[in-house]
Design a protein around this nucleic acid. Sequence first.
RNA 1: GCCGCGGUGGUGGAGUUGGUUUACACGCAGCACUCAAAAUGCUGUGGCCGCAAGGCCAUGUGGGUUCGAGUCCCACCCGCGGCACCA
Length: 770
Amino acid sequence: MSKEYNPGEIEPKWQKLWEQNGLYRAEDFSKKPKFYCLDMFPYPSGAGLHVGHPKGYTATDVISRYKRMKGFNVLHPMGWDAFGLPAENYAIKTKVHPDKSTHQNIKHFKEQIKSFGFSYDWQREIDTSSPEYYKWTQWFFLFLYKNGLAYKAKAPVNWCPKCQTVLANEQAQNNKCDRCESPVSQKNLEQWFFKITDFCDDLLAGLDKIDWPEPIKTMQRNWIGRSEGYEIDFEVKNQEKKIRVFTTRIDTIFGCTYLVLAPEHGILSALKENIDNIKEVEGYIESAKKKTEIERQAETKDKTGVKLEGVVAVNPANNKEIPIFVADYVLAGYGTGAIMAVPAQDQRDFDFAKKFNLLVIEAANSWEMAEKGIAKKKVNYRLRDWLVSRQRYWGSPIPIVYCEKCGEVPVPESDLPVLLPTDVDFMPTGESPLTKSREFHNVKCPKCNTKARRENDTMDTFVCSSWYFFRYADPQNKKEFAGKKLIDYWCPADLYVGGAEHAVLHLLYARFFVKALCVAGLIGFDEPFLKLRNVGLILAEGGVKMSKSKGNVVNPDDVIKQYGADTLRVYEMFMGPFDQAIAWDTKGVGGVYRFLQKIYKLQFKVQSSKFKAAVQSLKLEKLLHKTIKKVGEDIEQMKFNTAVSALMILNNEMEKEKEIPLEVFRQFLLVLAPFAPHLAEELWSKLGRKESVFLQEWPEYDKSLMEEETVKIVVQINGKARGSVEAAKDISEAQAVELAKNSDRINKWLLGREIKKAVFVKGKLVNFVI
RNA sequence: GCCGCGGUGGUGGAGUUGGUUUACACGCAGCACUCAAAAUGCUGUGGCCGCAAGGCCAUGUGGGUUCGAGUCCCACCCGCGGCACCA
């Protein structure tokens, strides 16, 4: 029997045994209540795992283990978000096929993740780049297509010149590519979109009923950007034309002294003949179009624009003639692309009016236009449809063919998956590498059987991750993306844990998919993740971000090698509040290691002989039950740091004793087990237990043991604590005051002073006001 | 600019309905073990004054409510995150 704590020996041993015994398999249709505990699955990058990944994974593992002990049938799966640009970029650089490098990376990730002893059900592992998986990603595309939620359109789209592909709005926030940070430009291209905007109101309403962090909800609300207002037409004088504007402040229309059109507004070309300074106007439009979004935004304070000479509009509220401007502070893509400017009310309009010396009239508060019905109620959203086509190779092909006779034809479901071809050149040309594949385009129209051509583009990887949580419920299904009964049993996920960076990306898209399925009657719920919690970043020592370039990345393999997985797990839970960003502290890791080492040594103090009289320790028993209560409650609330602290306190007390009652140690191991599973299992087996510690029930705490007969009553003088007295817990006010008055440290304060008042809080304190 | 969140020792952080601020851990100091070091164990550790007993001051700043405020209210300062010409 080893006397020393040796995690390098015990951890692989138990990991192997747990796997052999299938200890963590989720059981379909079990009678136990289900608990679906989900991690955001990782992109298997070439760099391997960093210490940030396992922080979230450890938290869900603690909860999964705890819930199993509480009698739940837990689904705790892991998989790989395997499609995506880095693998393809790597292929361009090294000529290693993405399929090969991705599978190497997955292998590496899996080994690393396994070394933590997480209780995943590996039989449900998924890989979004496998044909068995992306077959169903393509099925989802067709499902949306058939329900009028996928369409091809020519539109101005974000283009990343470095990645050589278009991007969704969500991936081009602040006009930077979220992959490579390059500034994005605008291109007018024909692309595939998903009609997420059909669900604006549902996506908003759903937020009210899910348990998510408030900041994430706020971000989604802002991103959807619902705004209620009015649309009203302004006539162009002496023309048969009208300019429709959108405003949220129709009541300020009497203060409207000019109109502003976005440079892309259609009426500009229609009015071409009537604009006297058309050359100047066209020049402005050209220069505005050339400007990047970044340049436009830089001009927030300094507004530019040109007045349209020779045309005027009429304010319908007071029939006054007002000038029309074209200016790029008005956006073509929002509202009607035209605004009524009320410089007295709106800062932006005021800045513009000041620069161009325009009239500023105090706006009379008038709802007349709305009441008469001249202005029509209108709701606008900032959310745009989701652009899903990508001009890249390493993604799921879009299951559409183009036929000269029939046009755009969806691939029949029976022909899925449309396999990624292998005869491709990865060098990006601005077109999808699939364009040049021969095998890929050798296809006949599913409708008329004449020669046809496949769609060249692949899907955004966020499409793959918009439905993956369903697949875990039924990962082998060959007939459906997941069977209805299994979806009903397991879904939605009860807890979802991951980084906050997905706030308006994955988390919005996944909600959209679920809502589309729900409306179509395929599932019976309309939110994928009932409870969401964000994991806080782990920073490098000194509080800066870990990054390869700074060389301050902590590799979990090294930590495990030196201290073991249990130490790393407990450290990451103990370092601070779970959702907070906290700096790595190597010294702190050592402290946790010492804690586990001490627990290991505790086993030799456990009184185990049947022939000796049982060791009793009321003190330890009381503390044990307090700890059971605290650890359970803290796990439920994801306050892991204080749960670990409670375990340390009990450990410290046990250390002080010469002998520890077996029952106290036994129950201590049960509550330790979710955090340090290998150590707990090892010591559990050393107690002679044949069955895994994880097949035990979570201990119940004994309330009666926590109630003390005597309590400490704090005695204050004028609100300042000056001492305390021991008293029966239900001592009366009169008795307590008397006791306090006469206690050593208090009576000298009262000597020769008048007690004006004595405040008594039952079982807690006495405060003398003197 | 707008919307969130936060500010407690040398450090990461604990603090129930307002009731002994600083749990737990790191670090540091002293001691023990050792030829020595590491490891381990024990003791101490908010600041100031004091030999001590003890006292005074401390939860970003300034006010307020209260017998009593880290906690509640008002104003301000600082930090972090998000949004940012969306009419």
